[in-house]
Nucleic acid binder design. Structure first.
Lengths: 244, 244
DNA sequence: GGTCATCAAGAGGTCTGACCACTCAGAGTG
DNA sequence: CACTCTGAGTGGTCAGACCTCTTGATGACC
């Protein structure tokens, strides 16, 4: 309690926990390129022994990385068993957004603005680069929504599929992952809003029309129009479904 | 091995692991709204007893949620000790992107396109909504980069700060978080590229000019110009620093 | 009465060692 | 040759002990 006055600046030492050291070790190998997609991690017991931590610490680290979609574990023996570097970004990102949206860390306006930014890009990319075969899932979702007297739940499902399919057709995986995660995190809130809508048939009809217009723009390879229509569609949807 | 032919469709049962059940339990409380930011979780031992799993399972679940920035643990006793619902989206998102970029799940073009989409939006939002006081950190980063004969590492640091500050000045936390995470995940690759540039002084001067132009557009509250300049700046930077 | 050292309690952090469940490879068997 | 069985190695789970940290109460001392 004495050296506070003008002493040498003591920077707080991190005091890392065991599992954080393990994460850092694995992350280091990944960033260094010595561990790439498909590679196996050593067995938990080995890793624990090598890093001088308990197996519990190793397992906690693996859980965190698994939660981020970086790693994937399989029980069993021989070929295929063990923990491997994976490429499953969706798993982690979706839960991440779902929880933080639910916690109110991001409110509706922010989500809408983000969706607009990402999906404008998706739409433009898809219009420019996607051929008819890439548009097949988009078309399929579009037609599924044309079912007469469709229930909000079903519609919402295909609606999600429609937007997600456009995102992936654009060929940009990062944009697509973020779009998927955001749209997915909004599925339940959107569904609740749809169920509370007074005139569902009317709303449904409008959404259908807008979807068809977007689809046409994509098929016409008109990037600007597709982007504009997508932005208008998203903004209008939220305005209708979440009136203030 | 007999009932395969036209038997009743057996859907695979999930076989969830213990920690996943714990996550689901906590996530359920969050989605239901009974657990919000600042609330404490029961002590690990209690939670384990209530959910009928071992403490290890509870700890693995908490680690996953901590990795996503949903929860935060503090040792000790009394007020302030324990595990709490938190709102730290950055922590998780940054590592997520850093690792997946390193793993090559997202390549450079995809990252650039995403940055353009997000930062165009940030720039426009900032130009529209931010007052001079919100622009202070942007200005500070700008001036820090004007230091003559600045080292690439230092420049890169302030460059990151500049773009991140714009993102936050826009007032959209989701866009800002994603922008921060992406920019941060590119810091090391960018730094490496800057160090390898043949004519650093020249590149540096160009980047400075573009930054100043963006700053002026923001101060002028010209959203369209700010967005256009930002897009051009990002695309040009990558074209110069990562020539093919 | 105030101030300070001390200590107990309660929280997370760690480790150990055991056992279970699953899966594959290969030995053994008809 | 085909099938079955078994062993071994992997992650999954658990129980229990102990450590460290932090707080708040206790009580001695001034």
């Amino acid at each position: 309690m004495s050296g506070e006055v003008a002493g040498p600046s003591w920077q707080p030492v991190p005091r890392a926990r065991a599992h954080e050291l393990v994460i850092a070790a694995i992350e280091g190998q990944i960033l260094a390129g010595t561990l790439t997609v498909g590679d196996p991690l050593p067995p938990e017991r080995d890793l624990a022994a090598r890093l001088q931590v308990s197996r519990a610490g190793v397992r906690e680290a693996i859980r965190v990385l698994e939660g981020q979609g970086v790693v994937r574990s399989h029980v069993g023996s021989g070929q295929g068993a063990g923990t491997f570097i994976a490429a499953l970004p969706s798993t982690g990102l979706t839960r991440f957004l779902r929880l933080h949206v639910a916690l109110g860390n991001f409110d509706l306006d922010e989500v809408v603005e983000s969706r607009v930014a990402l999906e404008r890009t998706s739409a433009a990319l898809t219009a420019r680069h996607a051929g008819p075969e890439d548009l097949a899932p988009v078309t399929a979702a579009l037609e599924a929504m044309d079912e007469p007297a469709i229930a909000p739940e079903t519609f919402n499902l295909h609606d999600t599929a429609f937007h997600v399919a456009i995102a992936w057709a654009g060929g940009n995986r990062l944009v697509a992952e973020m779009t998927t995660a955001i749209r997915d995190s909004m599925r339940l809130p959107l569904q609740a809003a749809m169920r509370q809508t007074s005139d569902w048939a009317q709303v449904c009809a409008e959404l259908r029309t807008e979807h068809h217009a977007i689809h046409t723009a994509l098929a016409d390879r008109d990037a600007d129009r597709a982007a504009e229509l997508t932005e208008a569609h998203i903004r209008r949807s939220y305005a209708v479904l979440f009136p203030r």
